[in-house]
């Protein structure tokens, strides 16, 4: 029972972070129909930027988070303006490849500046654990779930209520119609990349705090694909459900079966979902016309 509870909390924490990473991915896909293979590297860059501000420059926590957000915003804007905008109207293959190129570049830059060895960063979230129904549950995992839930709720409210959020949904729905209503599609594209970079920053910092600041953070980015396919490529609630399912699944498989197997199970789920229900649990079914 205690193993089960532990795995449950670990799985929910992983799932919450996955949902945050997947949120950025879905935002970009919804608004700009670009598949961003560099989402994992956004996590990586976010975590290292925070590390630089927090540990290297010695800024207080809040200032370090602000620096991280500013840098993430900048990266989002630059990537959209100089890499993705020239690619508008190209084949999907070209757009996929350009984000793969971007991911190689970002990862290599991080490696050049910070090396490959893991960096030590003082714990942000408390490392103590709490007794809960007879199981010892680490407090920081619980806090990760809480923070991710708050951030995801904030994003959801942003889409439902704020002007920019509604404009983003309008662009995702129909670009031309949105333009006729006076929405600047370019600005929305930039906004989507910025929000994706910021949500990846939060995910990266949380992930780095419960694991370590090192190059492996980028590998987490590939796990985004099973999540978004399961939840539906263009569905924000889908990322939360998909993230939690994949997070729990990997933790339970790794706890009860074999940690190695846990790395491949999400992809098996991905293939099955693609064969049975390609648009995922909450994705919008598209009918194709010639």
């Amino acid at each position: 029972m205690s193993t089960f509870l532990n795995l449950l909390v670990y799985g929910l924490a992983d799932g919450a972070i996955l949902a945050l990473a997947a949120l950025g991915f879905v935002l970009i896909y919804k608004a700009t129909s670009v598949i961003n293979f560099a989402q994992g590297e956004f996590l990586l860059v976010g975590a290292y930027m925070f590390y630089t501000a927090f540990v290297v420059l010695g800024l207080p926590l809040v200032a370090a988070v602000l620096v991280g957000v500013v840098v993430a915003t900048l990266i989002g804007v630059l990537v959209e303006r100089f890499i993705l905008r020239p690619m508008i109207g190209e084949d999907p293959i070209s757009i996929i490849m350009v984000t793969i190129g971007l991911s190689m570049l970002l990862k290599a830059l991080v490696q050049m500046f910070y090396g490959t060895s893991p960096k030590s960063q003082p714990a942000i979230l408390p490392r103590s654990s709490v007794e809960f129904l007879g199981a010892t549950v680490p407090l920081n995992r619980l806090l990760v779930i809480l923070i991710a839930a708050v951030v995801l709720t904030a994003f959801t409210i942003f889409f439902r209520r704020s002007r920019h959020g509604i404009a983003m949904r309008a662009v995702a729905d129909d670009q031309q119609a949105a333009m006729t209503m006076g929405i600047s599609v370019r600005r929305i594209f930039a906004l989507a990349w910025v929000l994706a970079a910021v949500s990846a920053l939060i995910a990266g910092v949380l992930l780095a705090d419960i694991s370590a600041v090192d190059q492996n953070l980028a590998g987490f980015g590939l796990m985004v694909f099973p999540v978004v396919i399961l939840g539906g490529l263009d569905s924000v609630p889908g990322t939360i459900v998909g993230g939690l399912i994949i997070g729990l699944l990997t933790q339970f498989v790794s706890g009860y079966q074999d940690p190695g197997l846990a790395t491949v199970v999400p992809y098996v789920v991905l293939v099955l979902i693609l064969l049975v229900r390609p648009y995922g649990l909450f994705g919008e079914t598209r009918i194709e016309r010639v």
Binding site: I35, T263, L274, L275, P278
Partner: peptide
């Protein structure tokens, strides 16, 4: 086989999964 129903972005992700699955098999 997934390519019969999927195209473009979805197919890229499906083949990514096949890469990961084959890699798992040859490693483990």
């Amino acid at each position: 086989l997934p390519g019969l129903r999927l195209k473009g972005l979805y197919l890229a992700i499906a083949t990514l999964a096949s890469q990961q699955i084959i890699e798992f098999v040859i490693r483990r």
